[in-house]
Amino acid sequence: MKTMTRLLAALSAAALTLSLTACGGADSAASGSTAESTATAENASATHIYVLTAAEDHGWTGSVATFAKEKVEELNAAGPYTAEVITSASASEQITKVEDILAQGTENIAIVIQPMDDTVQSAIQQVIDAEVPYVAFDRIIDSVSASAVSNVKGDNTGIGAGSAAYFVSLGMQPGDKVYVYEGDTSSVTTLRNQGFTDYLTGKLEFDGAAIDPALQWTEEDLASITYSGAMNWSRSTTKESFESLMGDSANTDIRWIYAEDDELSMGVFEALAGGGIDEATKEAFLANAPAITGCGGLGEMYDVIRGESYADIASRFSGVCSVTYSPAMIQTAIQDMVDYLDGKPVEQDHVIACENVVADNVEEYPSF
């Protein structure tokens, strides 16, 4: 009898071990996980949340995984849900990892995904077909967005509006020369351009307020805005572009520089600090007390705003601003999934409003 009892106990323990392994997701080394599940017997049947992001390497995109891991650690410590972060270096790798997750079983799982690009649509459609709840973050793929629990994104038009509002607050007048450093050729850049001009023409508000009608721009005024073309979010490309721009002395009177990312703004500061622009040209440009905006929350840009970096150059500017578009928004996306699993209402089109970060409030905002 004792032998039979021991055998039944051993079989029960083995069954429990198999159950926990199934609920805990793929092995970290095999799946690319950056945070392991902490499933226990008490929550073995609770939903496991897979958070799929780009690789944690550098820049805004890489920082998404860093903030995701912070939130995942919090969830694993608090329960009842377990979670892990799975990173990918390419869209094809991300598609494979989604397929691997689904192949392990689709019960008691949920997915939060930052799609690498629009080709990930095929994998997301598989998630939808498997009736697995998912939240999309940052890159929203329109063809599948209606099936998401929530589509969490920053306000790209708000970035443009915030930059325009900042310039107007510093005295920008209709028809003033503006130079826009564009990110790429995607809808992100289109929306950031649109937000800038829509604010100036009175079509869009920022922070609950519209432009003073006396300062509104006409369509003819908008012709004074020059667009750089795609910088591909590259600091070095922007640096070279600004050096070339300043190679024509007629451009030294440009006062308003709207950079659509903090990396692009830093390219301008690096150009002004380097040797690619002659000193007389730099002096002519800085004598006009230019202003510059970026966005994203880059720590180096916040250091400039604080006056701790490029201080001799930045002090000659009438203003330096970064509009919020933080990679920490991934934590909101994860929380939306938790709220959904808890049975709470979740906003499907979840746009996170922008705010302008300047010297007076920079300490209130996290950077990366």
Rank of each mutant, 00 (worst) to 15 (best):
A68I: 07
F206Y: 15
G32N: 07
V338G: 02
W60E: 08
A210L: 13
G229N: 04
V127E: 04
H58S: 13
S145G: 03
A291E: 03
V144D: 06
P115W: 07
E363K: 14
I257M: 09
I109W: 14
R306M: 03
E279P: 03
E99T: 12
V357L: 06
A209K: 15
G62E: 02
D138L: 02
V323C: 07
K177Q: 14
A91M: 04
S241Y: 09
I140F: 06
E355G: 01
K153M: 12
G296N: 08
S187R: 15
T17M: 15
S122A: 15
A130M: 10
L204G: 00
G162Q: 11
Y199K: 10
D262I: 05
E84Y: 08
F167S: 07
T281M: 01
V64A: 10
V135D: 08
Y199H: 11
V135A: 02
M4W: 11
A291P: 01
A214D: 13
G274C: 04
R316W: 06
P174L: 12
S326M: 09
E347P: 00
E243Q: 08
A209V: 14
G32R: 00
D100K: 15
V188T: 15
S45R: 15
D303V: 00
A13F: 11
G62H: 07
N193I: 03
S322P: 02
A287I: 09
D253R: 10
K203Y: 01
K239L: 09
F368C: 00
S367T: 07
S367V: 05
A13L: 15
E243W: 05
G267P: 08
G62C: 09
T226P: 02
P80I: 00
S322D: 01
G162W: 11
Y181L: 13
F317R: 08
I277W: 08
N251C: 03
R255Y: 09
E93A: 14
R192W: 02
I141D: 03
V346E: 10
D221W: 13
K153E: 06
V152C: 00
A91H: 06
G162S: 05
Y181P: 03
Q121D: 11
S88P: 12
S37I: 12
D278S: 07
E205P: 12
E363P: 02
R235N: 08
T293S: 14
L75C: 08
N356Y: 04
Y302I: 01
D221T: 10
I225F: 07
D100R: 11
M337C: 06
V149C: 09
A259N: 09
Y310K: 01
S150D: 09
E260P: 01
M329R: 15
L102G: 06
A44N: 07
G24D: 14
A91Y: 05
D221R: 03
A353N: 07
L170R: 15
A65Y: 05
I257T: 01
A130P: 11
A41G: 00
G24L: 06
D176R: 12
S169W: 12
V64F: 02
A259H: 08
V351S: 00
N151M: 04
N156P: 04
K344G: 10
T5D: 02
V168P: 06
L102N: 07
L18P: 02
Q104F: 02
I140S: 03
G276D: 10
G79H: 06
P133G: 08
Y181K: 00
K282D: 10
I113L: 09
M301K: 11
